[in-house]
Each structure stands twice: as structure tokens, then as C-alpha cells.
Write a protein that binds this DNA or RNA. Structure first.
Lengths: 303, 303
DNA sequence: CAAGACACTTGATCCCGTCAAGTATTTTGC
DNA sequence: GCAAAATACTTGACGGGATCAAGTGTCTTG
């Protein structure tokens, strides 16, 4: 049972699942192909026949006949393309949308009934799993959930600790005590924080946590940037910079004059980001930490 | 865009995905229905026609003809059922398996090619997502990943903290400081643990973490059970009892004479488990913890 | 032990979906 | 600048996938 077999199993399973859900279109007198075309027309704006055929992997001849049928029933309108007389823009008419309404209701009802039998946890798992599959395959239609930056909510502290532990173990070979160290830092932050002088942000997209950054008091004048982490999958999209700016902005408003941070030479991407954000390295010392030889660095900038 | 729409989007998306993958069976001269039947016959052992039709949602008449074709080609064998002369056991012959081999190879190759284009993270996400969907729908064919009980690995400490924080906030209304407390306990455990006298277990199924339990030293004679937690989805299946027994067994072997634990009155299921495992309550005091009024309890048992 | 349910099979039929050829328009190559 | 190739679409022809209904034995049930 390898990766390929797992996908095959899933394909077989979901083929059956789709078969069950397809019953809802039975009453309409339309075939699956026709329903798929209508759905795309309803959700996708004006289409060119060829693109539609390609997207749905339908035979162009078949599609031509399907569209002709729709036109005869007044469900679609085709208007010549300005600039290319071969193509015609296909759009659903109000009558077409009306004709689709009962079908729409039936599929929605069918899915609703299917979901009804699931408990809330399973339902959440289903949606998360479905989104994960689409994301993995790179479905361009998958809506990007909005990015949010929140303060610590229940579970966040542990997540920060867990991801620091796991990623530093993977990338730097750190041992368990690093995770314990982070746990101590986070616990301390929660217990002693002064909302005016210290702040934590979690970057979220939908249900997922993408990263975190902390601003903590070192002295009245000096803020320290700590626990800056980005999930590997979320890197390279400017998110790190946004989080840095959030942190710098808060430090400025909180009245700090300077911001300092620690990092390691091996974090090239992070170091580049610090440099781009106006930090400069003020010291570098070789050290042994968490079972690994590292080069500690301190960086700072005025605010 | 509600739950139902998300599922519909996924259905549309995966219908397209399946359409692409179905090309691999094109060269064989077999239709999708025939391929599905062959697959089931190959993986599912002897079938009765009716069950097969039901599973694949195929018309019985159609299936009858398909099977007749297979029999004519010597791909299947049907032997009368002992005890019911109406039914016949359908099984793939070696010749049938051989006929399927190139098709098998083609689908595997098609999927392999599809996976090749994905980076490792996406691939892991895909498999996890697919499994999540099947689990949510309650697919009985989804293999249960084997249960394992491991010591702390990178990321586990943080997970323990995160889940304690999230679940106690949800169920008991505890505030952030509880998560910080747990972080302190776990950090302390990692830093000061003596492998002979303290132990932690994470219950895992595949990639998922289902729960945790700790045995820590209180005095040379007395062990303390701590940080016992089970994911809600994993409760009610005897897993808690197994973890308790692991913990008690370790404490016994480590030479402890007695085991104590703290809990709260509101944890009814856990308390019942403790009682069933031979613990008895030794004290009860009302208290205020983490923003909530609670009734602290201490339990203990001899080893 | 008859009536009904059950496991299939067979017949009739439809239309889904595919291949191939044809038309009009646009792009490309020399 | 014009023929050849490509593109967007249509139409024709056709096979067989899929469905409904009726039929045949066999088993279960009241």
C-alpha cells in the first residue's frame, strides 16, 4: 500500500461518492455532461466553447450539440466575439438560470443530507481534507482564505512551541531541550506580559496557522523581537516582511527606541529579511546550542 | 460560499481530476464500468453479483452483461454458492488478473506522473487530505493506521501544550495562563527528566497524535500521573485505559510504591477511568483556577 | 405450501459520447 | 502577400454504455 495505491483507493471511493450524489440530477432529464456545462456557465461567466470543452474534457462535437440544445431552449445566448469571428461568447440567460434553479436546489439538498449525517468534527475534517486535496493539486479555483494576524488564542502557545521544536529539529538538528526553552519563553510571556509593552501575533489563513512573531520588553527603551517563525509552505510570499513590519510598528507606538534580536547565521532567509527591514548585525559569536555548533548573531535597528 | 458550496466545488474539481486519470484505461478497450468491476474483483475477493452492483451503483442488468463478457473471455470464474443456488461466487481467474495487469500499470503510471509534478509537501498534504475525507465520510475500507505509543519527538511537547490549552479553554473555560502552566510543566519535564523515573507517551495513529500521558517522580516512593489527555475523536474506544495501564506498568517497574494524580470533579469520564483502574479519591477541595470555579480532586492507588 | 422476496438474466431501447469529415476564419511560414 | 496550417466550431455517422422492464429459477415467510 504505497502512495499510488492510496490515491487509487481514494479515487475509487470518491467515484462511488460522486455516483451517489449524481442521483440528484436524475429528475431534471439532463445528463451529467449537460449539468456540468450548465454549472460552469453559471459560475464562470462568458465562455468560449473550446475552453469549456477543454476544462470539462468533453468532446467538442458533443459539446456543440449540447449547446445547440440549450440555445434552442433559450437557456444560453451566443454573441460573436469582437475580433475573432470564429469564436462566440456563451452566457447563461435568465431563463437558463431559472431552469437550473431546481437542479441547483436538488444537488444542494443532496449534499446537505449527506453532511447532516456527519458530526461536526467529521464535517470540519471533511472540508479541511477537501481543501487540502485541492491545494495539493494546485487548483487555481481554490479561494485563498484571508490572511489574519491575531493575538494568542487557546492552543496558539503550544503551536508556536511545537513548530519551533519540529522545524528546528528538522532543519538544524536541535534536540528536545530547544523545544523546552521555547516553552519556557512562551509561558513566561503569557504570565508576565504587559499589553502595552509586549505583543504576539499569529498569522492565520482560515483555520491554518502560518507563523508567529513576538515583541517583548528588554528595557524601557529596547524591545526584543523573538520567536519569529514562518511555516515553510508560507515562505517566499512577503508574509515575513509584513509580520516584521507589524512588530516594528507596535514597538514604535509602544515608545521603544531600539529593537534587537538574536538569530543564527544559518538562517539566511531570515537574516536577509532583517537586513532589508533596516536591521544591522552587531555581533557574532560561535556557540554550541542544543547539540549543534552554531554562530549566534545579534541584530538591531533604531525605531 | 458555505459548506455545501465547498463540497460542490470539490466534487466538480475532483470530477475533472478523475476524468484526466481515466484516460489511462483508454487503450484497454474497456469502459469505466468494466474497469471498476475488474478492480473490485481483484481487490475484494469473491463477490456476489448483487453486492457488486450495489457497491458500484451499477444496474444489475448491465453488470450481468459485463460479467458475461468477462466469463466469455475467461477472465472470471463463477462457482455456485453452497447453500443458495441463486447466487454465484465471482472470482478473477489468473487469466483475468493477467489481462488487467497492463491496465493496472497504466493507471499506476498515470497517477505516478501526476504525483511527480507535486513537491513532497504537497504530496503529503494530498495523502493526508484524501485520508481525512475518507475518514470523515466513514469509509469502512480506510485502513486504520496502527496505534503506536512513542516517547516525545520534536513537536510533541508543543502539541501537548496546544491541545491542553485548546481543549480546556473549550470545555472548561480556562484562560491562557493554563496553557502557560502546562508549558512550564512540560518544559520542566524535558529539562529534568530521569529516564528511569519519568516517562511520557504520545499515542499516535499514522501521522496523527491522539493523546498523551506522563509519569513523573514525586518522591522516591510516589509517582505522579500528569498531563493525561485524549483527543475527543479518540475517546470511548478503550485507548485511555491502555495509556493508563502503560503508565501504571512503568511506575511499577520503576520501583514506585504508589501513584497519585490531580484532576477536577468535572472530568467525569476521566474520573470513571481512574476509578476503574483502581484509583480512589483521597481529597476534594473547591478552588478557583484559570478564571473558573472548580473542585480539585486528588486520587491515588498502590502499585 | 402458496405468496412474496431475492438473485440473477434477457430483451428492447435510447441517447451519450466518440471519431471523422466539413466549413469558415485566423495565424503562420516562406 | 499568399498558400498552408492551425483554430473554432458544426455536422454526420455510429457503436455500445446504460436503463427500464419483464422473465426465470430459487429461497424465505406466514
Amino acid at each position: 500500500m504505497d502512495e499510488i495505491d492510496e490515491i487509487r483507493e481514494f479515487n475509487r471511493f470518491y467515484t462511488r461518492e460522486l455516483g451517489l450524489l449524481a442521483r440528484s440530477s436524475l429528475g431534471s432529464g439532463l445528463g451529467t455532461g449537460e449539468v456540468r456545462v450548465l454549472y460552469e456557465l453559471q459560475h464562470g461567466g462568458p465562455w468560449v466553447a473550446r475552453d469549456l470543452a477543454q476544462r470539462l474534457a468533453l468532446d467538442e462535437g458533443y459539446l456543440s450539440r449540447v449547446l445547440k440544445g440549450f440555445e434552442r431552449r433559450g437557456w444560453i445566448e451566443r454573441r460573436p466575439d469582437a475580433g475573432d469571428a470564429r469564436r462566440r461568447g456563451i452566457a447563461l440567460t435568465p431563463a437558463g438560470a431559472a431552469a437550473m434553479a431546481p437542479l441547483e436546489d436538488a444537488t444542494r439538498a443532496e449534499i446537505a443530507a449527506r453532511l447532516e449525517r456527519l458530526d461536526p468534527d467529521a464535517r470540519a475534517g471533511l472540508l479541511a481534507g477537501a481543501a487540502a486535496v485541492r491545494r495539493a493539486f494546485g487548483d487555481p479555483d481554490l479561494p485563498e482564505p484571508p490572511l489574519r494576524f491575531t493575538d494568542l488564542a487557546p492552543g496558539d502557545a503550544g503551536w508556536i512551541i511545537s513548530r519551533h521544536g519540529a522545524l528546528y529539529a528538522r532543519d538544524e538538528g536541535y534536540d528536545q531541550t530547544f523545544e523546552a526553552l521555547v516553552a519556557g519563553i512562551v509561558a513566561d510571556f503569557i504570565r508576565t506580559r504587559d499589553p502595552d509593552r509586549g505583543r504576539a501575533w499569529i498569522a492565520r489563513a482560515g483555520q491554518d496557522r502560518l507563523g508567529c512573531i513576538f515583541c517583548v520588553r528588554e528595557t524601557d527603551e529596547v524591545a526584543q523581537l523573538r520567536l519569529f517563525l514562518l511555516e515553510p509552505a508560507a515562505r517566499g510570499r512577503g508574509l515575513g516582511r509584513r509580520m516584521l513590519d507589524l512588530c516594528l510598528g507596535f514597538a514604535r507606538e509602544a515608545g521603544y527606541r531600539r529593537m534587537v534580536l538574536w538569530t543564527h547565521e544559518s538562517h539566511r532567509a531570515a537574516c536577509a529579511l532583517y537586513a532589508a527591514a533596516g536591521f544591522s548585525m552587531t555581533g557574532e559569536t560561535p556557540a554550541v546550542a542544543f547539540g549543534q555548533a552554531v554562530v549566534d548573531q545579534t541584530w538591531e535597528r533604531d525605531l
